[in-house]
Design a binder for these strands. Structure first.
Lengths: 205, 205
DNA sequence: TTTTAAATTACCCATTCGGGTTACTATCGA
DNA sequence: TCGATAGTAACCCGAATGGGTAATTTAAAA
């Protein structure tokens, strides 16, 4: 028997979900919470196997709620259920510790599947969400930098000094410096750390 | 009708997959390739809607194959089918441009679902793979750095200079320097760019 | 209450870095 | 053949960085 808690401010939706879950033999909705604060406290006090969590809550963002729950219970499985379909909340939620992300028009059967899925160690996501997640891994194709500049930037991203990069690429330190000047101009940055930050955040290397 | 090409060196598996696909009304296996080189050439010459690709190929890694195909056809949907279950190839494959990742013991029905899924803009993955992917977003919980050090490191990761960080955190440049020394020692690094690289790669901030 | 840890500021000094200018060579496409 | 681009190399100089040592205050923990 898998126990489920729901954090959702819309009481109709909350009740429907609870009924849906309780209509099964394998799942049981043990608690429902209508705001984030009580949801966090309740989940920590009486942990279920799985939490269904809304993002758009009145008192506090569900994202913050996820963080707070995961601080106390790092292993808790939390599925986000939201009306925000294809937005920036996806990555915020996953970074905060959500292990699934469903949009609210998900068919009820799929919601039950998702609960089963997380309990089995999966990470259920809506179709488009999954693609967004996978796309986020893919490197940008940039014709911006030349071949050699890209190599220098790669070395930079391991924290190397000019001298070390020069030794690795078998060129003089001055040439490294020259490439860096060009890289800085193209990336519109003014220091090594800024270049590294930009390269890693935008997956240029 | 969704067309599928298969790149797989084991001819038995390859034939089974082709037959499976051709047994449906919605999918058609138009080509099969038994090595990566001919697979790349064939897919580029005669692009299907979806490519099923093995990773462990004799002539070239499937990862390299994915890269080469995506260079020419950035929009191509490629699903990795592999015996390597829970390994580092997952992220390599996704970074290279795969949009799905299935292990080979996946039930045949699930393979057909996956083809449909990518054609619909999804990103089908085995249960454990999905969880690995989602986990990769989650920040490390590090008791290593103090609160203030973490704040300094966050600013560092935006490429700020000592002076800028000092102004933002309302402390002197010397204090920033002091925190940095401590951060460097704890992270075992010796420069801003190295610290930024480590922080971003290991999701410390 | 005492001790510890965290946060703060200061000074010194050698090294590294960022930006400016100049120049040679090779390659590729017009 | 000529110009553009990429890669290589050098010099100058002020600013930024890293490493070492020392000291004060405050908050938390023992």
């Amino acid at each position: 028997m898998i126990t489920v808690s729901i954090v959702e401010d819309d009481k109709d939706i909350c009740q429907s979900l609870a009924m849906l879950i309780n209509s099964t033999l394998q799942f049981k909705c043990t608690h429902t919470y209508n705001d984030c604060t009580s949801g966090i406290a309740g989940v920590i006090k009486d942990p279920p196997d799985v939490v269904l969590m809304d993002i758009g809550l009145p008192d506090m963002s569900g994202i913050e709620g996820i963080k707070k729950i995961k601080e106390k219970l790092p292993e808790m499985d939390i599925i986000v259920l939201t009306v925000h379909e294809n937005d920036e909340y996806v990555f915020d939620a996953l970074c905060a510790g959500a292990c699934g992300y469903l949009v609210k028009d998900t068919p009820t059967a799929r919601i039950l599947d998702a609960i089963k899925d997380v309990a089995d160690g999966g990470a259920p996501m809506s179709t488009q969400i999954a693609r967004m997640v996978v796309h986020s891994f893919q490197k940008k194709t940039h014709t911006l930098l030349t071949q050699r500049e890209t190599e220098v930037l790669q070395q930079l991203c391991t924290g190397k000094s000019y001298k070390m990069i020069a030794d690795i690429l078998f060129i003089s330190e001055e040439t490294v410096r020259r490439h860096l000047k060009s890289i800085y101009k193209k990336l519109e940055v003014h220091s090594k750390s800024e270049a590294v930050a930009k390269a890693l955040k935008e997956k240029l290397v």
